[in-house]
Nucleic acid binder design. Structure first.
Lengths: 202, 202
DNA sequence: AGACCGATTGACTGGTCAGTCAACCAGCGA
DNA sequence: TCGCTGGTTGACTGACCAGTCAATCGGTCT
């Protein structure tokens, strides 16, 4: 039967990807050898090359998997949210939630891809850009409806918003700011409050 | 005379550092070989090891040089600025100015150090943290004086502020947002406007 | 049984580089 | 003139590691 043969095969592939998340998060992409991934996954060295054509492809796969979810979430937020502010809240919520759900994966994606201007960041630039653009679209819509001021370029606002969130994740990754469940909950509303209302009292 | 012998020596060291900036910016730290630095600097391979004990030390030196200037600038801004908003403006201005003045160096520092959670970022965490803390101090002072609202944690605001700026630099580095002199000028006030006033109209 | 086939194994190879080191050179003081 | 000292050179080595591949295993189909 095909299922008996292919079901474990799929498991092994997943097993390797999950192991790679842990090892990349622990040591960084550059200093993990393929043998580390294989060891962590409990499979033979060569099997990694059975499922992936290179070490790079393992990371590409991890990024693609997660980033497509982010893009979908942003678009969903845009569709479902009532006010632009609620839309931004949903986006921030999704990203923070992703970190809460799987900090290691988000660490890998941010550190090794999103911010790697000379390697994977460049490769995946089109996809990364799509996220910026979708956020900018939310801001632009907010400006048209008069709910956001018009004197700040949407692209610009989008970068600031995304940058603020990513920096929070970086803070958690570096352990320079506390990362309890309460902090995660707060974070979402606080970024949005900062970006939408500003630091000065109203 | 010592000056005849040591003056060119100092020049060579500088020459190597400057070459390293260009090469690191172009290829990234991991994919530049020490021979690339030597070639770019127009000196022999071994000379790099006469002035630096390792490839890592070259990057450390570049980071230390620049980051100490940033820390000094933040403290100076805190001392000289009238309002907290003006202080933040000075900080943003310094960082944007640093990028305008030497984009390659700033690219290297951000991509290879500030955001490298598994390598140099960890090594230099104390210094990086000092910057976050100084900015947080500015925010906290603003809250005490009533010029900033008190319901946003200063550490948190500091991360958002710094993150927004760094993301702008990243945008320039990746060339996803335009980087003309006018853009640099605007950027400074726009980040501050975004963070202090917020996106929603007042 | 026996042919077949994809999954799995891990020893091995080829290439790459960081860092070493012995030799060389230039200016200076004796 | 002749060391001496410190800057300068680049060939070389030892370690490391991504990717290959021939062999093996286990299940299925005839």
């Amino acid at each position: 039967m095909a299922s008996k043969a292919s079901a474990p095969a799929i498991d092994k592939r997943r097993q390797i990807l999950d192991a790679a998340i842990r090892v990349f998060a622990r040591q960084g992409f550059h200093s993990t050898r393929v043998s580390d991934i294989a060891d962590e996954a409990g499979v033979a060295y060569g099997l990694v090359y059975h499922y992936f054509k290179s070490k790079d492809e393992v990371l590409n796969e991890l990024f693609a998997e997660r980033w497509s979810l982010l893009l979908a979430a942003i678009e969903e937020a845009d569709r479902a949210g009532a006010s632009p502010r609620q839309k931004l809240e949903a986006v921030a919520g999704f990203i923070v939630g992703s970190y809460r759900h799987d900090p290691e994966l988000m660490k890998v994606i941010i550190v090794e891809v999103t911010r790697a201007a000379n390697s994977f960041g460049r490769t995946h630039l089109p996809e990364i850009r799509r996220a910026y653009d979708s956020i900018a679209k939310i801001v632009a819509e907010g400006q048209e409806s008069g709910e956001f001021r018009r004197d700040i370029d949407p692209t610009f606002a989008s970068m600031s918003f995304y940058g603020a969130i990513e920096q929070l994740l970086t803070g958690w990754i570096f352990e320079v700011i506390p990362a309890s469940d309460a902090d995660f909950d707060q974070a979402k509303s606080l970024v949005v409050a900062t970006i939408c209302d500003g630091l000065e009292p109203r």
